[in-house]
Design a protein around this nucleic acid. Structure first.
Length: 135
DNA sequence: ACCATGACTAGAA
DNA sequence: CTTCTAGCCATGG
């Protein structure tokens, strides 16, 4: 049978579509869902970087996709703690994507994470490496 | 199908 | 320290 399905396997037709996964309980293993899954594993009061998540998925060079996936995190259930995901220097690179902007910083402070000038203070201490914690 | 953009990262100058 | 370059790959026009 002629299978026209490409090996590329579109991880997600669209971000909005990710909101509604297969109702049969058969969730598609898309890059995005993996990102959300790892993001949910981030413990309270901890943060991680896009690259760390990407590395955990085996594609550390695709950190951009992690960030892009977070773009739809707000529409995903259960809620994805996207506010715990920042760039490699602890900069709240995605704070402008929150609604309202500044909520990200507020949430972090709520978890005991100090934010100064859009940068996480003591980022190294709060950093949580999924590749080490997740087995 | 091509081109431009993007919540990134690592390395080089 | 800053600035630039290249790689990554999905999304949208």
């Amino acid at each position: 049978m002629p299978s026209k399905k490409s090996k590329k396997s579109t991880p997600s037709k669209s971000v909005a579509k990710l909101n509604k996964v297969n109702p049969s309980g058969k969730r598609e293993e898309s890059f995005f869902e993996l990102v959300y899954e790892v993001a949910r594993q981030i413990p309270f009061g901890r943060v991680t970087s896009y690259g760390a998540i990407a590395a955990c998925l085996g594609t550390k060079l695709s950190a951009r996709m992690v960030g892009w996936a977070m773009n739809g995190a707000d529409k995903i259930n259960p809620t994805v703690p996207a506010h715990r995901v920042v760039n490699r220097v602890g900069l709240l690179s995605g704070k402008h994507h929150f609604n309202p902007p500044g909520k990200m910083e507020k949430l972090l402070k709520k978890e005991g994470i100090l934010v100064k000038d859009d940068v996480i203070v003591n980022f190294k201490e709060k950093f949580w490496d999924p590749t080490k914690e997740v087995m």
